[in-house]
Amino acid sequence: MDFYFLMIFIFVIAALLGFELITKVPPTLHTPLMSGSNAISGITIVGAIMAAKADQTVLAQIIAFLAVSLAMINVIGGYMVTDRMLGSFKKKGKK
């Protein structure tokens, strides 16, 4: 089987999985869920690491640096904000 066919195949299945994962969400969790999935979309950091290869032109290195930095802002910022939001629920649960 063609490599690209397999990739399109998993793309479609993953999209369907995404649709099915989110069915019933209490309104309370809409914002944390949005923020949490936003952090996950920072997965592109993996692509940025792959793109930061050794022995490249200066332009390619600058692009790679920007990609890693921006993806990292998304990952760290996204997870910490989500934690902050969820932290306020947790505190309440213990009471």
Binding site: A14, A15, F19, L21, M34
Partner: peptide
Amino acid sequence: VVGAMVGAAGLIL
């Protein structure tokens, strides 16, 4: 996989 999943989940939300 992760991008498609997050994309679809975001659309549902």
